[in-house]
Amino acid sequence: MTTAARVWRSPTRGRVGRKRGGGSVAFYGFISPWLVGTLLLALFPLGYALYISFTNWDGLSKVKPWAGLANYREVFSSPDTWSSLYRTLLLIVFVVPATIVGSLVLALFLNERVKGRVVFRTLIYIPAIIPPVAAALIWKNIFETNTGSANRFLALFGIRAVPWLIGGHAFYALVVMMLWGLGVGLIIDLAVLQTVDVEQLQAAKIDGANAFLSFRHVTLPAISPVLLFQTVLVLIATLQTFIPSLLLSPATAANATQGGVIGLVPRSNTFYMVNVYAQFFSYSRYGFGSALIVVFFVFILLLTGVIFKVFGRGVYYAVDPTATNRKARRR
């Protein structure tokens, strides 16, 4: 089996920098509005968070008592840190593969010339454009123990009502809610599937490849850069899961007295960022909360690096930008 895809090794920064300094200026010139804004809006708060993480500030007092490394020691010794991180990683195990594989499988089906595919594409994409609050309300109504349609459906088969939004069940209800919005990935996958070279697919077919082999050796390499990008984005977004957890809990402004808003989030859905929020806004521990997110930032950074290192090797770039550039110059 042959494949037209070939590995393109990116040139080292120093070598290209020497040869093509002008390109570098143009690149940074074009991205500078975004870059300057990001640096101004991210760099100062980042430094401020780092400073706060060394204090015992409660967010309201005028004094910010110096705590040294105490908050960082507590981050690593607190059972809440580890349990919330464990639950976050568990969520990743469920959500990230299901999102990537699920949206790709759906995209492959909807990329075929089948009758009514526009309707199916629209139907599958609609959940992705529903605001998260509305989506959470829909799922809360579905999973409500006493009146929800999930339990009404189970009752048809004589199955006893399940407290979906309470205890360990709440985790699975959350996973279902999060997967409901995989239409975004579907759109990206559909777009990239349409860039796969038809000639290569036909060549593979002539070579005797069946649908699976064509997918494995032609389609998958061609779309692998986008899949890697999607994986990283979904991973980072899932690591930071907070709002879905809060929205699916029984917490409302009206019943926040039942242990505070965070007190109502089931333990199974108390992810890392939920713990961070609780430290900031339930316990007024801005110093410790800042230390938690500084550590998490480093964790995400390292994890992203590992993913690029491990999975980046299997990514194929079908287009050599150097060649494209040369072609453009010749015109």
Partner: peptide, 8 residues
């Protein structure tokens, strides 16, 4: 970075 900044 943006996520960190947004939180703090």
């Amino acid at each position: 970075s943006a996520a960190l900044a947004a939180c703090t």
